[in-house]
Each structure stands twice: as C-alpha cells, then as structure tokens.
C-alpha cells in the first residue's frame, strides 16, 4: 500500500457503476437498507453540518443581520458592498499570492527533500524524521516560534545574518516580506509532502532506471522521463490539496499579525488584522472579522460563498483528475 494507490490501474467510476446494476430488486433493497444502517449517523451529520449551514450561508448573504435584531432581506446589497471593499480585493490577492508561491515552493521543496532522502545512503531514516518533525509542530506554536526567530531587532536569524555581514529584512514587520516569511514557515513544515514523495519515488521500478542508464540517459533525462511521469498523479494531488489547504490559510496569519504587531499586548487594543498594512490578510480572516468582529453577517457570508465557489472549483478538478484514485475497488 503506498501513495500511488490512486492514479494507477483503476477502472473509471462510471464503468464500474454500470457493472453491478442489480438484477434483483429485492436484493438491492436489502443492500440499501443494510448500508443505510451503517451510514445514517453520517447522513444526519451531513444534513446538519454541511447542507444546513451551506444553505443558510447563501441565504444570509442576501440579508442584513447583526445577530441581535432579526435578519432583513436586502437583495444584492452585501454583494455590491463586498465587491467594492479594498480589504476584499487585498485579501483575495494575498490568498492568490499564497496559493501560487507557497504551494509551488512547498511542492518543489518537498520533492527536493524526497529525492535527497531516497538517494542518501547513510542516515536516511534520521533525515526523514528530521524533515518530518516540523510539520507536526502545532501551527500556533510554530508561528509564535517563527515570529521570535524572525524578529527584526533581536531574532536569531537576523543576528546570524548580521554576523556574516548581511542586514536581514524586517520579515513579519515589512509588508513586502511578511508573506515570504510565512512561506518560509510553510516550507519548514513540508514534511508531509516529503514523505508522500519518498514513498512514491521508492515505487519507481529500479529496472527502468537501469535500462535508461544503459541507453546512456543522464541523470537529468532519467528524472525528466522516468521520475516525473511516475510522480505525476502524486504531484497533481499534492498541488490541488495544497491549493485547498492554502485557501483555508488562517491560523498562522492571525497569530503572526498579533504577535508581530505587538497589538495583542494590550487587551482591547484594536486588532491590526493583516498586519503589516493588510499584507497578511486572507479571505478566511476576512470572514472571521466580518462575521465575528463587525457582526456583518451578510457580508461575511458573501465572502464565504466566494470561498466556497473557489474551493469547489479546485475540488472538481481534483475529482476529475483523480478519478482513478477515487474509484472503488468493487
């Protein structure tokens, strides 16, 4: 059992669906009842925790509701308001930046570390553990740690840099460097992808490499024509799930803005969301601050719907591209 379970040798879902069209209606009913006996709690949960809130999110997006006085229908007003908000476009831009830069850097560095672990002969197991550990660090803890490490004044990173004559940037305190610094944090936690790539790389039949080498293929060619095609399904999967995880990017951005701005020091001081200058504001944060700080339920729900549409667009790509891995065995 390995990462490559999906994408290889699986029949398309539709073909199989046709294969077991039951001929005996009685048996089919019995099977349906038996399955229902196992999945009914999930069906109820699906209704309460998915369908209901999704429907109400859409409904709320057309209402004015301050969560105290009853909601009133306002048509498209919230939509017009949100699409005219600077903060909305800024956070959409930030989220897009993170999706493009953070996801690709994570995939590339995960693959790089995976290749390294596979090729290293001494201490591969130890390396794998070391590269994996940071991924496990709870996000709040890892973020506070990075805010400390990258503190422009007293942080160890800039201290070390200045020892070799480099003046380090202001990281989380500079609008131009805040997102790169968050990317650094994300790359530190790349262990999950690394492990997936290692498993998949080990799956490449060694004979293929040997044959290619005998044919005179150099290492780059072997990588290009054997490794990459073999990894393609895993790469696609890593990229798409990475995109969807990044669309939810929240905890690190919130924590770092509070710690770096120093505004959390004084209770009640207005939280400088997206500090510095909105450069770390993401769509999920905007949902939170609209819904739970400004209590503009309608506007929060507009942003939720936008987020939903984007996430589902990527999910549908995944479902189509990954039909193989989703396919059932029988």
């Amino acid at each position: 059992m390995s990462a490559t379970t999906f994408g290889r040798g699986a029949t398309p879902a539709t073909a199989r669906a046709a294969a077991w069209t039951p001929r005996q209606p009685g048996r089919r009913r019995r099977q349906n009842l038996a399955a229902l006996g196992l999945i009914w709690p999930w069906l109820i949960g699906f209704g309460i925790f998915f369908v209901y809130p999704l429907v109400s999110t859409v409904w709320f997006s057309f209402t004015h509701y301050d969560q105290i006085n009853p909601p009133t229908w306002v048509g498209l007003r919230n939509w017009r308001y949100v699409f005219g908000l600077h903060a909305f476009w800024q956070s959409l831009g930030n989220t897009a930046w993170l999706v493009v830069v953070m996801v690709s850097l994570r995939v590339v560095s995960g693959l790089g570390l995976g290749l390294l672990v596979v090729r290293v002969k001494r201490g591969a197991g130890l390396l794998r553990t070391v590269f994996y550990l940071p991924y496990l660090a709870p996000p709040v803890a890892a973020t506070i740690a990075f805010a400390f490490l990258l503190n422009p004044g007293t942080g160890p990173v800039n201290t070390l840099l200045s020892k070799v004559g480099i003046q380090g940037p202001d990281w989380f305190n500079d609008p131009a460097w805040a997102k790169p610094a968050l990317t650094l944090l994300a790359v530190w936690g790349v262990g999950d992808l690394m492990v997936i790539f290692v498993a998949s790389l080990l799956d490449v039949p060694a004979e293929q490499y040997e044959a290619a080498e005998l044919d005179g293929a150099g290492p780059l060619q072997r990588f290009r024509y054997i490794t990459i095609p073999h990894l393609r399904p895993v790469l696609t999967f890593a990229a798409i799930t990475g995109v969807i995880a990044t669309l939810q990017y929240y905890t690190q951005a919130v924590v770092v803005a509070q710690v770096a701005s120093g505004r959390a020091d004084q209770p009640g001081a207005p939280f400088d969301a997206g500090y510095p200058n909105g450069s770390t504001l993401t769509l999920p944060q905007l949902v939170y601050s609209m819904g739970f700080q400004h209590f503009e339920t309608g506007s929060a729900c507009v942003i939720s719907v936008v987020l939903f549409v984007i996430a589902m667009a990527f999910t549908s790509v995944l479902l189509r591209r990954g039909a193989g891995f989703i396919a059932a065995e029988d």
Binding site: I44, G47, Y52, W59, F60, Q67, I68, P70, P71
Partner: peptide, 19 residues
C-alpha cells in the same frame, strides 16, 4: 445527538430568527 438533530431540523424549517 438524535435529539440535537431533530432540534436542528426545527431550526431549518422555522428559518432563522434573532433573539
């Protein structure tokens, strides 16, 4: 939890009212 589920169905049908 079943009770919760039933209660929430009531919420869905009654619409959303602020207190």
């Amino acid at each position: 939890l079943i009770a919760l589920a039933i209660a929430s169905v009531a919420v869905v049908t009654s619409g959303c009212t602020g207190s």
